[in-house]
């Protein structure tokens, strides 16, 4: 299916292997020797108290922060220094903890933006519009309409996103990430600030994305119920360090995790 595979990819290698990542901002240690892997097709949750370094970890994965130490292996290859927009081209998409939509555009245009890495028509074709560019635009539009149907946001497609309520904005942002047809989808607290009904919808979307598209998902979430339901494996972080890694059942019974959440010093 994927013709770009060079044959180098070991069968057993995880989609992404994060090795010994350390990240500092001046004196602040955001991440300290964090290692874990992300297997193809799984939902990998990252949990931890506020300021644990979860968002920083996602920022490292999509190249927005450059760690001082450590390596990231993606699809069996070590990733060198690389700009965020090129990481997007390698099939990594994300949503943000604080919504980062394009406020001046409609929901539809925002989601269409997500397909920027898949656009083939060059400048001159776009300038001419007739023919290839228009056909391609229609293709993208069809894919985006499928996403809009999937996320059940048909009614708001032409609404400027700034006018949408928070829950719908989160959905549009998920739509924009999905539009890129990513291999690896990073979701930073997609359900924060939502009521139960909205959360259930969002859980359903996340599960469906994993099941139907086979997308690998990294999910940061505070709601333990959600994490236990959705995640295949869980990473627990505290003070920039990884304190536990395993299937939800193990994590629930892990003493370090219980301590971290109860705020016991260690």
């Amino acid at each position: 299916m994927n013709s770009s595979g060079s044959g180098q990819k070991a069968i057993e290698a995880p989609l992404m292997d994060i090795r010994n990542i350390s990240l500092r901002f001046g004196g602040v240690v955001a991440l300290e020797g964090v290692s874990f892997d992300i297997a193809e097709g799984e939902i990998r949750a990252i949990i931890g108290p506020n300021g644990a370094g979860k968002s920083s970890m996602l920022n490292v994965i999509n190249g927005f922060y450059t760690p001082q130490l450590g390596e990231i292996w993606y699809e069996g290859r070590r990733r060198g220094s690389i700009k965020p927009h090129n990481i997007a081209r390698q099939g990594i998409a994300r949503t943000f903890q604080n919504i980062a939509l394009f406020e001046g555009m409609s929901a539809l245009d925002n989601i269409l933006c997500g397909r920027v890495t898949l656009v083939r028509s060059g400048f001159w074709k776009q300038l001419l519009w007739w023919g290839p560019a228009e056909r391609e635009e229609t293709e993208h539009r069809e894919r985006v309409e499928q996403i809009i149907d999937f996320l059940e946001i048909q009614a708001i497609r032409k609404t400027p996103v700034g006018q949408l309520p928070y829950g719908l904005q989160k959905r549009v942002e998920l739509g924009r990430a999905l539009a890129a047809e990513p291999k690896l989808l990073l979701l930073d607290e997609p359900m924060a600030g939502m009521n139960n009904e909205e959360k259930e919808d969002m859980c359903r979307f996340v599960l469906d994305v994993g099941d139907e598209l086979g997308t690998t998902i990294v999910l940061i979430e505070h709601d333990m119920g959600v994490v236990m339901d959705l995640a295949d494996r869980v990473v627990v972080m505290d003070h920039g360090e990884l304190i536990a890694d395993g299937v939800p059942q193990e994590i629930m019974n892990n003493q370090d995790v219980i301590d971290a959440y109860l705020g016991v010093a260690h």
Binding site: F64, K83, A93, F96, C113
Partner: peptide, 9 residues
């Protein structure tokens, strides 16, 4: 910033 992260150079 968001533009860059979705793949806009």
């Amino acid at each position: 910033i968001a533009a860059e992260i979705i793949g806009v150079d």
